[in-house]
Amino acid sequence: MKSASKAETYSFIQNSPFSIGESDLVAYLDESRLDPRLMEVCVEFIRDFWYILDPKLLNRKAKASQFPFMIKAAAILVLSYCGPESGQAAVQFTRWMKEAITGIKDPAPQFLYVGVIPIGSKMATRTLHEAIPELLNHNLVEAHLPFNKGIPKDIKDEAWARSRFGIEALKAHYASQVKSLKVNHSNSSIEKITGANRMFVSKILNNKLNGISLEYLMKAAEAAQSIS
């Protein structure tokens, strides 16, 4: 999606959420420093689909990115402003977030977005005075919550996804069990453990599940779980 227009990128994230992998999200968050609308789309993706991403893999990808602190900013905003869709959603999200942002340092004090607010302008002064406290605590300055129309809505969970997306959510669930192997195993080792071929392992690790059947993913997940 690197050559896609901004509108196409927003649409892809919103309409194909189960195709977004850890590397994709980190890349989009890096780009969002220049694009507040993209930040909004990324934050809402995390709010609604955090559970399809492995937090340890996400953490590893974020630490290797240009702006590691962006995943921290996004997750903190979801936790701080979004209520739970279910009784356990907030608890589960909090646990996931801690793994996703562990060891990621705060940046030097700066605006969240680059090239959006002129330094020394009235807008900059107003943004500083109205800065979101939860971001300011981590040295980031921005006054507007990155949610559509400023409405945070609720944190979603897998139960919500299964009721709405059916087989796509199930495929993502089983793929996540295979992806959990990546923390301690190489791709070739995952191939041996699951019986999946190289191409399918690569697709599963990147949430590119088109062309892979639910049954295939279930068998791979069962093999993955047998050694955990």
Rank of each mutant, 00 (worst) to 15 (best):
Q66L: 15
I101H: 04
A64E: 15
Q92L: 14
M70P: 01
P107F: 08
G87L: 10
Q88F: 06
K72A: 07
E99L: 12
Y81N: 02
V91Y: 09
F67I: 05
W96Y: 12
F69W: 12
V91W: 03
G103I: 01
G83Q: 14
C82E: 11
F67N: 04
D106V: 14
R95I: 13
P68N: 06
A73P: 01
M70T: 09
Y81R: 05
T94F: 12
A90R: 14
T102C: 10
K72Q: 10
E99P: 01
T102F: 08
A89H: 00
W96R: 13
L77D: 03
L77Q: 02
A74L: 06
K72D: 13
A73D: 00
K98E: 13
C82W: 10
S86P: 02
C82T: 08
K105T: 15
P84L: 04
S80V: 05
I71N: 04
D106G: 07
E99R: 12
Q88W: 05
P109Q: 08
Y81V: 05
T94D: 13
A64M: 14
E99K: 14
S86E: 06
L79C: 05
Q92V: 02
S80L: 07
K105C: 11
S80T: 13
W96K: 11
A108R: 07
L79V: 09
A90H: 13
I101L: 04
Q92F: 07
K98H: 10
Q110L: 05
A73M: 03
A90F: 06
E85T: 02
I71D: 06
V91D: 11
G83R: 14
A64L: 15
G87T: 01
G103Q: 13
D106T: 14
P107Q: 11
F93L: 09
Q88I: 07
Q92N: 15
I71C: 03
P84T: 05
Q66I: 13
A100F: 00
A64K: 15
K98M: 13
P84E: 01
P109V: 08
Q66T: 15
E99F: 04
W96G: 07
T102V: 11
K98Q: 13
E99H: 12
K98I: 08
A90V: 06
I101D: 02
V78Y: 01
M97K: 15
K98A: 14
L77H: 02
Q66K: 15
M97Y: 03
A64H: 11
I71S: 05
E85H: 11
G83E: 14
